[in-house]
């Protein structure tokens, strides 16, 4: 007993760090909950262009992506180098777009459907022909709210 008494008496007691794990766990859970892991594996190579007048894309759960670009190096053997459309995890043709939009709509609650945005992530070097075809399909499906995904820059060069 005397041993314990001695310890207490000398100097100030150390600050308890017992609650430190709690604080760190709290931070940990915050990050685990807020961050969204990328759910799509890109099969096309995409370098989005840069623009100055960009808006932030809000409410990610209401955004669906359409990717257009050349197939990645590993897949060029089988799919060639012509730019292709990717929806979710697979290559698609422009005929699949209307169905894709319908499925995305089904997965969204009715109240939020008017706020759905389709974001087009398109590579710099893709020609407008395929992009226009996709836009026409979007119009046919009455998905009119779109977003051209671009990075932000301060100045546009010629």
């Amino acid at each position: 007993m005397s041993k314990f008494k001695k310890k207490k008496s000398d100097g100030q007691p150390a600050i308890s760090t017992a609650s430190l794990p709690d604080i760190v766990f709290m931070l940990l859970f915050f990050f685990m909950v807020t961050t969204v892991m990328r759910e799509v594996t890109l099969k096309v190579e995409i370098q989005t262009p840069k623009a100055t007048e960009v808006d932030k894309l809000e409410r990610k759960s209401l955004v669906s992506y359409i990717y257009i670009g050349e197939p990645i190096k590993a897949l060029q053997g089988t799919f060639g180098t012509e730019p292709r459309i990717q929806l979710n995890d697979a290559f698609a043709t422009k005929r699949d777009i209307i169905q894709f939009i319908e499925i995305e709509r089904e997965n969204t609650s009715e109240a939020e459907r008017p706020f759905m945005t389709f974001s087009m992530k398109v590579d710099n070097d893709v020609k407008m022909g395929i992009v226009t075809d996709v836009k026409q399909e979007l119009r046919k499906a009455n998905a009119l709210k779109i977003n051209y995904s671009t990075g932000k820059t301060d100045k546009i060069v010629d």
Binding site: F31, T35, V36, M37, R38, A51, E53, V54, D55, K56, L57, K60, V63, T117, S119, K135, L138, R139, A143, L144, K145, I146, N147, Y148, S149, T150, G151, K152
Partner: peptide, 13 residues
Amino acid sequence: TTMDVDTGLTRKL
């Protein structure tokens, strides 16, 4: 985890 903010030109067709 990447907290990339998506930016872009919003347009209405």
